[in-house]
Write a protein that binds this DNA or RNA. Structure first.
Lengths: 132, 132
DNA sequence: GATCAAATGCAAACTACTTGCAATTAGGGT
DNA sequence: ACCCTAATTGCAAGTAGTTTGCATTTGATC
């Protein structure tokens, strides 16, 4: 947690109440959450501030953005230890982590210098799949 | 081309002028295109009809949707022969195909029954990378 | 060619995001 | 601890992209 606060301070940005609350909301979450999820949790903070805070966190590189299908983007704090992707249940919305990533293989295949990537899977989780 | 027309007819949907034009627009394209791209090409068709046509094509499973970052979704016709993904240049928007896919490996790793997936990469293409 | 459910065009509604600006606040200097 | 100032916030309005209701039109069957 202090790690993230340090990054914010070192960037020159102020450590304001809205920013601390959004950070706390992300930090306490097991799964990626959307802007409106954060706004719901931090109900005393204006949506515009949540929006700008997420934009800031993204620029500071402490955020991972997950785009699943046509739904709203979801966010989670970047942790250096575990790079991972996600699979989401199309029935109940449950999200699980996936540890496999082929970024290095793709980088070998292309002449592009890869700066970002997303790998998301949509499926039916075991609970929702029973009785089919 | 007739393959797609057959799928549309067999679904019970009518083979109307707007649908044929959208199909033609997608068919003649080398790269995925957005709703507004299609609307620009098929300028005599109302945007709402383009929208509903794409929705229909998607339901019929003849479409692949590509979501790259926070930009508009792009669409291309599904071809059974070549399953692939994409890398897009963050500078000029150029899109290239990537043939590697780890869907089978992921399916082995998860208890979810995977029904859909996306793997998109964002990078800087060789042309845009020169002079840096 | 007549029939009619399906599809279209139009216009308005909606959702999610984005921005301008006056009021507020964090944090360095004193 | 208080002042100062630029950074940040809340508010409200704007924007982009998508979605929908409904009267009119049209493709496909008879």
């Amino acid at each position: 947690m202090d790690h993230y606060k340090d990054i914010i301070k070192e960037s020159g940005a102020k450590l304001t109440k809205p920013r601390l609350m959004v950070l706390e909301a992300l930090y306490s979450q097991e799964r990626p959450i959307s802007l409106s999820d954060i706004a719901d949790i931090c109900f005393e903070i204006d949506f515009a501030s949540v929006y700008r805070t997420i934009k800031l966190f993204d620029e500071l590189g402490i955020l991972q953005t997950i785009n699943i299908g046509d739904k709203k983007p979801k966010y989670e704090l970047e942790t250096k230890k575990s790079h991972h992707h996600h699979i989401i249940c199309s029935e109940c919305g449950r999200i699980e982590k996936i540890d496999l990533c082929i970024l290095p293989e793709i980088q070998k295949l292309t002449k592009f210098k890869i700066v970002n990537h997303s790998m998301e899977f949509i499926g039916i989780c075991p609970d929702c799949n029973t009785g089919k």
